[in-house]
Each structure stands twice: as C-alpha cells, then as structure tokens.
Design a protein around this nucleic acid. Sequence first.
DNA 1: GAATCGACCTTTGTGTGCAATTTTCCCGGT
DNA 2: ACCGGGAAAATTGCACACAAAGGTCGATTC
Lengths: 234, 234
Amino acid sequence: MASKVGDSGRGRSQAVHRALKRAILDQALSPGAKLPEDSIGERLGVSRTLVREALVRLSEEGLVDLRPNKGATVARPTLEEGRNLFLTRMALERLVVETLSGKLTREQIDVLSAHIAAEEASKQEHATSIRLAGEFHTLLAQMTNNASLIRYVNELVARSSLILALYGRPHSSECAVSEHQEILDDLVAGKTDQAVKLMAHHLDSITTRALLPKEEDRNIKDVLSAYAAAEGLA
Amino acid sequence: MASKVGDSGRGRSQAVHRALKRAILDQALSPGAKLPEDSIGERLGVSRTLVREALVRLSEEGLVDLRPNKGATVARPTLEEGRNLFLTRMALERLVVETLSGKLTREQIDVLSAHIAAEEASKQEHATSIRLAGEFHTLLAQMTNNASLIRYVNELVARSSLILALYGRPHSSECAVSEHQEILDDLVAGKTDQAVKLMAHHLDSITTRALLPKEEDRNIKDVLSAYAAAEGLA
DNA sequence: GAATCGACCTTTGTGTGCAATTTTCCCGGT
DNA sequence: ACCGGGAAAATTGCACACAAAGGTCGATTC
C-alpha cells in the first residue's frame, strides 16, 4: 500500500526515504539496527540503487550511520552528542520563537491549538505521543517561512526522537504538552522574552529530566566505549 | 593539499563530492550551472553512479538543486532565502561564540590568529579571500566540538558563498578581517556579550552592506523570474 | 581442546545497459 | 517571419551484473 500511495509525488527513492525515516522515528527500527540494502529493497519492491540513494540521504540527515564496506545502521548517538544536539536545537528554536512572537495568524493559532489537543488526546500511546510532541516544534518552525531554519529544526527534532528512544525514560514527555500550550500563549500575546525563556526551559528540562539517569547496562557500555575510544581501543 | 588529504581515506564518491563542492565554492561552477552526470563522470574518471551519489549529497547540503527528470544545477538561492539563511547563521554562530567565550586554549588562539593573518595577506585575491573569510567561521565552529553545530555552520557558510557570489558586491568582504580580529579578542577576554554583539554586527553588516543593492541586469532577471513564477510561467 | 587459517557466503562498491522523459531543432504551415 | 509539431538526440531513472570486502564457520594443527 505504501508503494501505491507514496509514489505519486515523484522519484521513488523519495518514497523509500520517507518509508525508512518513518520506520526509524516510529522506533520500528531501533537505533543500531542493521539496514541491509538487499532486504529493504526486496521488502519495498525497489532495487538496491534506490535504497542506496535513500540511505545516503538519511545518513546526511544524521539518522543512519553509513560505514564504508560495513553497511548502514540506524544512528546511535552518544549521550554527549545528544546534549550537544539539544544545545543546537535551543539556538535554532530560539530564533523560531523570536520570529513568530506576536505574528501568528488566526489560522496558525488554530492549527497549533488543534495540534496541542491531539497531543493531549494521545498521551497514552507512547510512540505517537513522542511523534506529536516533535511535530509541534516542526510545525512552529514551518511557520517562520525560513527554509534553512525549517530544514535544520526538522532534522534536529527527528534526531531528538532517536536520542529519547535511546536514553529517555518512559514518561518523560508528559509534562511537555502543558508547556507547549504555555509557549503558544506567550507567542500569541507577543511576549517574546517570556516565550524564549519558556522554550529554553522546555528544551532544557528534556535534557536534564529525561536524558540524565537510567543506570542500565546500555549506559555501562556507553561509558566503557567512551573510555575505550579515548585510549584508541575498539 | 586539501584534495590529497580528503581523497585517500575511502570511497571515491566522497572524492567526487569534494571536487564538486570545491568547484562550486571557488565559483568555477557558478550558480545555475548545469551539472550533467555524464560529463562530470567522464571528466573525473568515474561512472555516473558515483557522480549521482555525490550530487544527492550536495543537494542535501543545499549546494545543488536536484529536480526530477531535469537534472542537477548549482543552487541559485533567492535573495529572500539569502537573508533567511543569514538569520539562521546568526542564531547558530551566536551559540558558537557563547560556547567558546573565555574557553579558547592557547593553541586554538594561535590557529585563529594565524588564520586571520592569512586572511589579511590574501586580501587581493577575491576568490581565496572569500574562502578564507568563511573558513574563519567554520574554524570557530569546529572548536565547539558540537557535531551538529559544526555541520550546520559548515553548510550555511558554504551556502553563504553562493549567496555572495550571486548578490554580493565586489569589495564587500574587506572590512571583515578586522572584525574577525575583534571577535577573537573578545572571545579570548571572555567578554561573551560583547563577542555576541560583534558577531551579530559582523553578520548583519554582510547582509545589509553586501546583499542589498546592485541594480544590474542580473537583478532584473531575478525580479522577472519571481513574477513569472508567481504567474506559473517558465 | 583451543587457536588459527582458509574457503564459502553474505553484503557492499561500482560500472553499464536499457527504458523513459526531456530538450533540441528541424520542418512545414499560416 | 513566426509559430506549432514531431522526430532525433541528449539526459536522467532504474535495475542488474560483476568485483571486492567482511564475516562466518569449519577444518586443521599445535
């Protein structure tokens, strides 16, 4: 079904790209998963050529790691990369907020409100909940009409999903919905500084609240790998 | 020397990518130029497959436009995109400056000083002058050790070259060198706010000083094409 | 019995061929 | 002289084939 619907836009490699991206963001493919060109192509009904193209795109977006002669895997950002990524996100979303403050049209406000409502409604489903939370930010970015800003925010939000999938705690994104509402309120009221501060807090709370703990075996490996890398080991 | 270092590592598609990127940034290939897979492959001694991969990467970086069934061309950003791009750049470079302020090592300071000296020395050669001016910013970004930040600044700086190539006046980047020195001084002194302000001014002056006027035939065409697009014409 | 070497099998790297689409340009009509 | 119309040439879209690199598992040896 995906093949029939997705094709229309143009180039089928785009369709493959979207399919894989969606699969990754939905955590159907979890970080570190192998992405063999063959199987994917067979499953999606296209040749390796197109899969390859899609993988290159995804690697350029930072969603997959592409190691020479070793194939593609879903990206597995380190915790350090994660924190840096949120720093970058903050810088860009600050611009988003500054650009939008006091300039939202009625239509845009409606769209955002509806989206927040949808977020509220899907609190239970962990997967879609994360996706909707991210889409709020991309929606905001979209409204700036700044192409590069949009692109980068999209990328960073997507990769944030990966980070949260790896290091996030189960119920980390719950409070986010109310914060989204507050941000929207300030944007509508034109309280720029307040909105920026809220957005900063919003993103910061994700990093500190959701990203820090989780003393599982996964973390042990990460810590070790960091030390190993520092010593030039495998 | 850059070519020797970059190539050998692995994949030849990477080499093609670098070659094309370099050619574009040096304005050997000017914005809007056609990039036929065949000719490029023949000229570089590789097959279309590899050229294709490089073009996909470049399009993902925003350096080439890749239209379905119509082939690749060197990107031709509009003036509007240009201004937005510099807005985004500002947001990111602000983070760069904030991250680096007061934390530069002696080595890093030396590298930057040397670079500024090189900029000073090559004032005459328009092409390299622009390149070095850009590299100052990428150098700064590099020192943050923030992967995503580095990547985006690199991209934006590269695309800025395109913008300046299209809309910049001949001697627009002259004063920049002294401003670079000032920024470095403030970074070393740890005057964060001052450094941010300077960087803001630095980038802003590029947009207002270099990007605005230029009433040449090129602009006429651009204006017309904008109206044509609005009317659905060629 | 454990370690090492090697043949096999899987997966990626790259070139090439063919179909489809776009562009060019030549030609006839108005 | 100008404007379609259509065939030919050029270019991209896509798949497949072959070569090379990596990984695995078993056999051989100490």
